[in-house]
Amino acid sequence: MENTVIQFNGVSKRYHLREMIFSKKDCFWALKDIGFGAQRGEIIGLVGRNGAGKTTLMKLASSITAPTKGAVYVRGRVVSLLSIEGATNLLLTCRENIYLLCAIFGLKWSEIRGCFGDICRFAGLDGFLDMPLKRFSSGMISRLSFSIAVHMPSDIILMDEVLAITDAEFQHRCFAKLAEYKRSNKTMLVSSHNLTDLQRICSRVIWLDKGSLVKDGMPEQVLKEYSKALVGD
C-alpha cells in the first residue's frame, strides 16, 4: 500500500437543500458509500452526468470539505483546479492576483518571485499584467488561473472540466503540461464530458451516477458502457 496516494473508504456526503442548516430534514446525499484507491502515477477519469457527484468527490479529495460518513486519506500535496477561475479577485490586477493566489496555495515570497516569470510566460498575458481582472474576458481569466495552478508544487492534481473555454493553442500547451505530469509520476483525477480526451490521457475511468459508483475500470470498457447508457436514456 506504499503507493496508494488517495484512499476513499465508504465515503458518503450529505448536503442541505435549504439555505438555513438548522433543520435535519431536507437533505440529499451527493455521494453514497464510495470506495476506491488511487496509486501514484495513475490518471483517473471521472464521468457521469451533471450532479452525479464528480465535483463533490474532488472536493473531498482536496480536503475542501469533510465527509459526512467514512474516511478519506490523501498523501501528498494536492492542487485542485476546481473552477479555479472563480478564485480570482476581479478588483485586483493580473499581477496582484498571481501573488495572492500563489500565497493561498502556500508559496513563500521568494518562491512566488521564482515562478512569477514562468506563470506569465505560460499564460501569455504580457501586456495585461497591470489591468484589473474585471476587464478580462472569461477566456483570459481561465488562462491566468490555470497557469497559476499548474505551476504550483504538487503530487496530486484534480481537474474539473478546466479546459472548456480556452482556445485550441492554449489547450495544446495544457495537454503538453499533462504529459509532463505523467512523466514525473504525479497522480491525477480528471473529470470531463469530452470522452475522446479522457480516452487519450486516462489510465482508468470511474463512472458515477446519482452519487453512487457504477463502474471502475479500464477506459475503453467504462467509456463504451457509459456512452451506451447516455444514448439509452
Binding site: 475542501i64 485542485s80 479555479i84 478564485a87 493561498i104 496555495f105
Partner: peptide
Amino acid sequence: FNLITRINF
C-alpha cells in the same frame, strides 16, 4: 466564499 469553496488553505 469563492476562495473557501475552491482552495484548501
